[in-house]
């Protein structure tokens, strides 16, 4: 398979040039190319037939991981490999490295980017779920010069759909400085090692000085609706001591309520089982990181 005819290829060096390149095209004619590990599959199979490609590989300001006073910003063009090996990203941001270090395979992690993944928002993908669990914000710039920032909850609309408009470029994903005693984790189960998640679970928790859970976010990957929160587990974790019995109950409740489906990879009951067993493991690890 190879792509349909492409009329124009641009390789801007700055965000301003990237947006200018986009504004020279008719709406919907051009697409931004990040790492291309999903988009190129779609272009080769001709599910996507862009007239123009704006390749972001040379835009240096879209790359890099910045920690300032605990607040984290990851440029949209930062690769999984760079996130996976950043030793500063434990604790509150542990879910991000958990997810990035198990995406696809080495070759994919050497090209694929956080921005590409959240903008593609594939129905079963690790990165959108890890970003949702940790409460990331998406920072967008538009061809008009306007910028806006959206919570992951408002950005991730459903499989292959986000709130990004055709005239917008995702600049970065950012997180406020986490409260003390915050930990997060992510894990998935797939048919082979590091495969797409049949089910993936991300958890972020904060404990107060007495050990009480005062913040809990749970997100799931692998459901037909795409990356989504798991409020049924969150309400039970909140106010608890993060003990094993509460964690069990929280993920039993989420598994019972989750809208799981059956397909060739797993049936609906098996997906419920995975939510429970992965949820237990991930929540335990998130609390361990919060206590560390």
């Amino acid at each position: 398979m190879f792509p349909a005819r492409i009329e124009h290829y641009a390789r801007p060096r700055t965000v301003a040039e990237a947006l200018a390149a986009l504004s020279r095209c008719e709406p919907g004619e051009a697409i931004f190319l990040a790492g291309g590990q999903s988009a190129m599959q779609a272009i080769k199979s001709r599910m996507l037939r862009p007239q123009a490609l704006v390749d972001l590989q040379a835009v240096a300001e879209l790359k890099g991981i910045t920690l300032t006073g605990g607040a984290l910003t990851i440029g949209a063009m930062t690769r999984y490999a760079d996130i996976a090996r950043d030793a500063r990203l434990g604790g509150a941001f542990g879910a991000l490295t958990d997810a990035a270090s198990h995406v696809g395979d080495r070759q994919v992690r050497n090209r694929g980017t956080i921005g590409g993944s959240v903008c593609w928002n594939y129905v079963a993908a690790c990165t959108p779920t890890a970003v949702l669990a940790t409460g990331g914000r998406m920072n967008l710039g538009a061809t008009s010069g306007a910028t806006r920032s959206l919570a992951a909850d408002d950005f991730l609309l459903g499989p292959l759909e986000t709130a990004r408009q055709d005239d917008e470029l995702l600049l970065s994903v950012s997180w406020d400085a986490p409260a003390a005693r915050t930990g997060s984790a992510y894990a998935k189960w797939g048919l082979v090692t590091d495969a797409l998640p049949v089910i993936g679970v991300g958890v972020s928790v904060t404990q107060d000085a007495s050990g009480k859970c005062v913040q809990a976010r749970v997100a799931l990957a692998g459901l037909a609706g795409g990356a989504q929160r798991g409020p049924a587990a969150e309400v039970l974790l909140m106010g608890s001591a993060g003990d094993a019995a509460t964690i069990d109950a929280a993920f039993a409740a989420l598994a019972a309520e989750a809208d799981t489906h059956s397909d060739l990879s797993a049936d609906a009951d098996y997906r419920r089982q995975l939510i429970q067993s992965l949820g237990r493991e991930v929540a335990q690890r998130a609390f361990d990181r919060a206590r560390a």
């Binding site: 290829y9 590990q37 190129m40 599959q41 050497n110």
Partner: peptide
């Protein structure tokens, strides 16, 4: 189709020559 791009292993079927 794995090759080295600037020393790193990547799949050459998921890239265009212009890239």
């Amino acid at each position: 189709c794995t090759i080295h791009l600037d020393g790193e292993a990547v799949k050459s079927c998921l890239m265009l020559a212009v890239q």
